[in-house]
Nucleic acid binder design. Structure first.
Lengths: 384, 384
DNA sequence: AATCAACTCTGTAACGTTTCAAGGATGGGT
DNA sequence: ACCCATCCTTGAAACGTTACAGAGTTGATT
């Protein structure tokens, strides 16, 4: 017996020691582990007993080395502290678990360097595939990964060249919904808060805002763009301060924030300056995270199907990983939905919206579900 | 040349192919990868060129198999959707990254079964160590892991038998602070909302509440305990409804919730029922997540040093993983701090508390930092 | 010349699995 | 008695990496 003998006390045991203890060959132990039905009952029991007594635990590295693939997928997001991404992550996890895969969750924190490091790490780990919300145009890295054989699915992002699958929500439409609503409320001077513009989500939402303005016979110049360096609460507070400090005649009467964290930050700043929301300034957020409804002034927001986004992305990835060669890339696009609450509407909303867990059919909203023309296989996912 | 030759196009390349292309032995390639300084400059360059041309990526499984250990640590938390845990996770990640380790983040979602599965998975991956916030008394599993040689550090939890390192915050004290504050505000009928009681965090906070009551000459019977099945927003709403529906004479005038998610849920429920907070009922939360300050009524909460908790835990783990044999287990205990905001105080607070990112020196609070008697090496971490 | 040290490089043996062709047993049918 | 099928089990060959003992080269020193 190599290493320390018997008992549970010893450190790591190998399959070989189990074999020795049970008086069989290593091949048989492996069979007990992987295809127990082909080994005789008595032997199986003997081996299982040995496994239990030794406290044997498979070495996943060795399995993977042999298999050439790991039983893991990677998920690389922009910000784990943002509830949008944790909800998305849970969707991914649910789906992956059903296929017996583990998820390695990585946080690029908006940094290209971190993103690159994590992609490398995931590739070294030979993950089955990678779900990524790219920091900027990470096209080159992603393409290289794919050429080397790692499937990649873009999450909350769209594939321009159709070179990979992607799952996203129509951010331009989201921006339109938000601004159309504000225009309808009578606002004329509107600020767009968000950044960095290199994030597609941010620029798309701004583009949607512009489009809505133009549809109402106004121009892009009517949108006061306040670019932030990041999408968290602190940046929102800062942006709020910048807005608040504008001379009264130039100050917008409404802010459309690129995500809820910014909106919550802006809201905090306004409250602390005793600027009333929505009376003095209206605020609309984006994502409709759970905390939006619980905010100081319940937040109007553009809802995205986060959990489903994650599930759909994982599904596409698994499909590609299993199909192998003849895989047809697909772009799944979900539709966002406007949820109106107090922060943008002077008139009282009909019902206490924030009392229901999942408000639906709110005026101004559109039915959820993927946009026309998108994939239908997964599309039904969008409509509960 | 085995497999597809040359170019970046081919799939996965091994060190052997790099060696062939560069006209050296595999050993040399390995040296270029791991100790480039011992190989002659010209050879090194040739090898590096080959690596680049082939798009070679190390196989981490093979490295790990050879090394017997992976370059990864596991972090198993109760709820990734809870900002408390994501903030903690970022602390862990920061610390791990500095040592070149990756973090596998797992979510037990309060389920013993999931917890067990993930522990097994992490052990199979031969992680350097595991940081865990146990669901219940997971003592047995943890002990087994340790006997087999995987270091384990309990996070936000305390080691009873001193069999492992642990990092926690004094939850009993936290409970005391909360209730002492409510008593001082004149509340006499106080509800404690939280569950399941099998979570040590929950029962400790309740015990602290009881202790504060007793210190004020009252008894445990004065605490109306409302046990919830989980610690998320929905459970908080439910609990809020239960409280709201009590006959007026039996309804408490204050609720102390075991975490902020519950508190936010309770707050939403009250608001939607037009029950005024804090006038009709005061609410105190726990954790002081970023969203607490931005709530409908800014939430009084017991703050925990989340990021530092994560860093400290990772530090202890790495220490144990490297020290190997002669490691002395340590229990690091931080102190919580009460942050008073509108949800519990009828009198206006002195300053617009929710305007500052990190309110300090709030009346009723105590200085942060580890409690006396705890480790000092890491202890200083607690005081910025 | 012979010896030595300093430098590079090579070849091979692990690491712990899984897979698979081939090798026993066993027992039923002829 | 022989052959075959069936059922289990075995042993060895991968998988890609690293570590290490040893083999060549050089160039300087005796």
């Amino acid at each position: 017996m190599p290493k320390s003998a018997g008992g549970e006390g010893g450190l790591q045991h190998s399959i070989r020691e189990v074999a020795a203890k049970a008086g069989v060959s290593v091949g048989t132990v492996s069979n007990v582990l992987n295809r127990p039905e082909i080994v005789a009952e008595s032997t199986r029991r003997r081996v299982q007993a040995a496994i239990r007594q030794l406290g044997f635990v498979r070495n996943e590295s060795a399995r993977q080395l042999r298999a050439g693939k790991s039983r893991t997928i990677g998920l690389l997001v922009l910000d784990v502290a943002n509830p949008f991404f944790t909800d998305l992550a849970r969707g991914v996890e649910d789906e992956a678990n059903e296929s017996g895969l583990a998820v390695i969750l990585c946080n690029s924190a908006d940094q290209v360097a971190k993103e690159r490091r994590y992609l490398e790490l995931l590739e070294e780990h030979r993950v089955q595939g990678i779900l990524i919300t790219p920091v900027a145009a990470a096209d080159e890295h992603v393409a290289r990964l794919q050429r080397r054989g790692t499937p990649v699915v873009l999450v909350d992002s769209r594939s321009l060249n159709r070179g990979q699958c992607s799952v996203s929500v129509d951010d331009v439409l989201g921006g339109e919904l938000a601004i159309a609503h504000l225009l309808e409320q009578g606002h004329r001077k509107i600020a767009f808060v968000g950044g960095p513009m290199s994030l597609r989500q941010v620029s798309d939402r701004r583009d949607g805002a512009v489009r809505a303005l133009e549809a109402a016979g106004r121009t892009a110049a009517d949108l006061h763009v306040i670019e932030t360096t990041a999408l968290h609460v602190a940046a929102g507070r800062e942006a709020g301060a910048r807005v608040a400090e504008l001379p009264a005649d130039r100050r917008p009467t409404a802010m459309f924030c690129a995500n809820d964290l910014l909106a919550l930050g802006a809201l905090q700043e306004m409250t602390s300056r005793r600027i009333r929301v929505p009376d003095s300034i209206a605020i609309v957020g984006y994502d409709d995270i759970d905390f939006a409804a619980a905010a100081a002034v319940p937040l109007t927001s553009v809802r995205q199907p986060r959990h489903q986004l994650g599930r759909a992305a994982a599904q596409l990835l698994l499909e590609e990983a299993l199909d192998g060669g003849n895989h047809q890339h697909r772009q799944v696009i979900f539709e966002p939905e406007l949820v109106i609450r107090d922060s943008s509407s002077t008139r009282p909303v009909e019902a206490p919206v924030f009392g229901t867990p999942h408000p639906r059919g709110v005026p101004g909203g559109r039915p959820p579900g993927p946009a026309p023309g998108s994939e239908t296989g997964l599309a039904t996912e969008g409509v509960p």
